[in-house]
Amino acid sequence: MSAANMHVPAPLDTALPSPVPGDEHEQCPVTDVLRRVGDKWTVLVVVLLGQRAHRFNELHRGIETISQRMLTRTLRGLEEDGLVHREVFATIPPSVEYSLTPLGKSLLEPLSGLAKWAIANQPAIAASRRVNNLPSRNT
């Protein structure tokens, strides 16, 4: 957002311009983070790494439907953002272990809050979808 909106302590504390300029929305740090955590696999990978460090194949086996390519892309993106640390061990063949950085660990609390909200409100969301004849996203 504009310079006035860059250090907003909470989304509702600052009035947004109307309409919100597209370039401001694209440059917003919140939009950037939501793009990262809003993809199909990132939250699951972060949660698994929040439990303990994993080797690549452990992660791949632990997420039933993710492809190797998509897991690689997800881990690379998280590493680029400073959320995941990749450590290569000089074994034959070389092995790689992934763990959360302190920044990545700091994401676990807000993700937990979002998860609690989603679980608590899922029945109301499903009921609203039924009333509005929309398909459930859980089936």
Rank of each mutant, 00 (worst) to 15 (best):
V43D: 02
S99Y: 02
T72I: 09
P123F: 01
L134K: 12
D81G: 09
P21E: 05
H60Q: 13
P17H: 03
K105Q: 13
I125D: 07
H60C: 04
T31Y: 14
F89H: 15
A118L: 08
P93M: 08
I125P: 00
L108I: 07
G82F: 11
L12V: 08
E97R: 13
R76D: 15
V43W: 00
H85D: 15
L59P: 04
G77S: 11
I92P: 06
G22N: 01
E80C: 07
P29D: 02
E24P: 00
I125E: 10
V88G: 04
V88F: 12
A90N: 15
V45G: 00
A90L: 10
P102V: 02
A126P: 02
E79K: 13
D23L: 03
A53C: 10
L44C: 07
A115M: 03
S18P: 00
A126G: 03
Q27F: 05
G77N: 14
Q27L: 05
T72Y: 15
L107P: 01
R137Y: 12
V45A: 01
K40A: 14
D32E: 05
L48C: 10
L108E: 06
G22D: 07
P21W: 01
R36H: 11
P94F: 11
V131A: 13
N57R: 14
W117Y: 05
G104F: 04
N121A: 01
L12P: 00
T65Y: 09
N132L: 12
S18R: 11
R35Q: 14
T91F: 08
V96C: 12
P21G: 06
Y98R: 06
I119W: 03
I92N: 11
L34F: 10
I66L: 09
R55P: 06
G62E: 12
V88N: 09
S112H: 08
H7S: 10
H60F: 07
H54P: 05
V30Y: 07
L48N: 14
A126Q: 12
P19A: 03
G22M: 02
L103H: 08
R76S: 11
V45C: 02
Q27A: 13
G104Q: 01
E80H: 11
H54F: 14
K116M: 07
E109I: 05
V96P: 05
L83A: 12
M1A: 08
V84I: 06
I92W: 01
T91Q: 11
K116T: 11
S136D: 14
L59H: 09
V47E: 15
Q122D: 06
N133F: 06
C28R: 08
S128P: 00
